[in-house]
Every structure is written in C-alpha cells, then in structure tokens.
C-alpha cells in the first residue's frame, strides 16, 4: 500500500451538489482489464465470477465485450496475472477515475450528452459508451446511482460537462 497523500486526482475531491444530483469523485479502486475466449477459464484463473452477457455485472466484474471484462475491486486487492495462460490480465487501476452521480436527476445529467437511451439502462448494467466525444464505462449501481469510469485525462472535461448540465437542470 502506498501513501494516500502521494496520490493526485485530475478532478477536485469535493463533490458538486445540485438539487436532485451530486457529482463526486469515487474512491480509488483496483481495476483490471481482463480478456479471454473462455469465460470459465478466466473465472478460474482470477478467482472471480465472470458474467457472460455483454452489459452484465457480477460483483465487481463487468462484461464489456464478448471477450472483455472490467474488474473493479477495492484499492489494494490483487488477482493472479494469469502468466502463460491463454488470457490477458492488465492492471489499469490508475487509467481511469470514477465519477459517482447520485440522485433522482442523475439520469438527466448523464442523458444530456449520452446518445444512448438511459431509461433502458438497467440497475446492475455496465457498458462502455460515450458522452459527447468522451468514452466512458457507465455502471448503473442503483436506481439513482451511477458510476462513470473515465480515462484520467478526459475526466476534467467530463466532470465539467456533467456539472454544467446539472447546473441547467430545471
């Protein structure tokens, strides 16, 4: 474990609060990009359940593509790197940060720039998608709670865009 004081984040730690929605920086996470043809073999190698339907989640494991998963675990967690196996485990813990949107208007804030119909985005669903020109992984953690994993350098723009959208809510 490394000293937290040495970490920097690309966006402010203070949440932005609006009537109906808050936009906050999520806690640091351990993240892995997992790739394999065989979900069962992957599950065995990394020791976590692996959902097989794109968009599905199981614990911290989200299926993003037919052979691609994103595993998000508390900071400090470790998994097997699968050396020599026909699969790929890559540590991407610091590639992204998480923005957490919470509140009844969170869906409206996200929909301001996401072309996908978010009313059809189920609780427990996770997908890679886009907000205006910025790619993100969107996870609906609850009816009114959404986690957005966005690459670090795009995070200030995305946060600013979401805050702007929230400021316009009527």
């Amino acid at each position: 474990m490394v000293d937290l004081a040495t970490r920097t984040a690309p966006v402010p730690a203070e949440p932005a609060e609006f009537p109906g929605v808050s936009i906050a920086l999520g806690v640091p996470l351990a993240r892995w990009s997992l790739r394999a043809r065989d979900a069962k073999a992957l599950a065995k190698a990394v020791g976590h359940k692996v959902p097989t339907k794109i968009g599905g989640t199981e614990g911290g494991m989200a299926c993003l593509g037919p052979d691609e998963w994103l595993l998000r675990l508390p900071e400090g967690a470790t998994i097997s790197m699968g050396e020599g196996l026909p699969l790929s485990v890559v540590d991407i813990s610091e590639r992204a940060i998480t923005l957490v949107l919470e509140g009844p208007r969170a869906i409206d804030v996200l929909q301001s720039g996401a072309p996908r119909d978010l009313s059809k985005f189920a609780v427990g669903e996770a997908r890679r998608t886009i907000y205006e020109t910025v790619e993100m992984v969107l996870i609906r953690e609850g009816e009114e709670r959404w986690a957005v994993d966005v690459w670090r350098s795009f995070a200030p723009y995305l946060r600013e865009a979401l805050v702007t959208a929230a400021s316009h809510l009527r």
Partner: peptide
C-alpha cells in the same frame, strides 16, 4: 450546446501538468 469555451473539446493533461 454545451460545446463552447472549456467544453469545446477536451484538453487532456498529464498527471505532471500541474
């Protein structure tokens, strides 16, 4: 729409930029 000034397009900055 929102795409003006700072939101015209993302300006990507490295962790060392500050």
């Amino acid at each position: 729409g929102h795409a003006k000034d700072a939101l015209f397009q993302p300006t990507r900055k490295s962790p060392i930029d500050p």
